[in-house]
């Protein structure tokens, strides 16, 4: 019996591959940030420089 790949089948496979890559990518990104912070030994925290010491006047 000859097997053929349907158009729907190809699309479904492509979608699953893309989803897998996206999931993997997101996982990698989340691991990277925490790993980078741990490696650096510090976390760079953005604070408004135009604010007085208390805290920024308002969320922008």
């Amino acid at each position: 019996m000859k097997k053929t790949l349907s158009r729907r089948g190809v699309l479904a496979s492509t979608a699953m591959l893309a989803l897998g890559l996206l999931t993997f990518g997101a996982h990698q990104a989340s691991a990277d940030a925490l790993e980078d912070i741990a490696k650096a030994g510090s976390i760079k925290v953005g604070i408004f420089e135009t604010s007085p010491p208390l805290r920024p006047w308002a969320p922008t």
Partner: peptide, 13 residues
């Protein structure tokens, strides 16, 4: 909480 030091960076709007 993360076991590191805080490095404060000044930013603007």
């Amino acid at each position: 909480h993360l076991g590191v030091k805080a490095d404060l960076v000044g930013i603007t709007g």
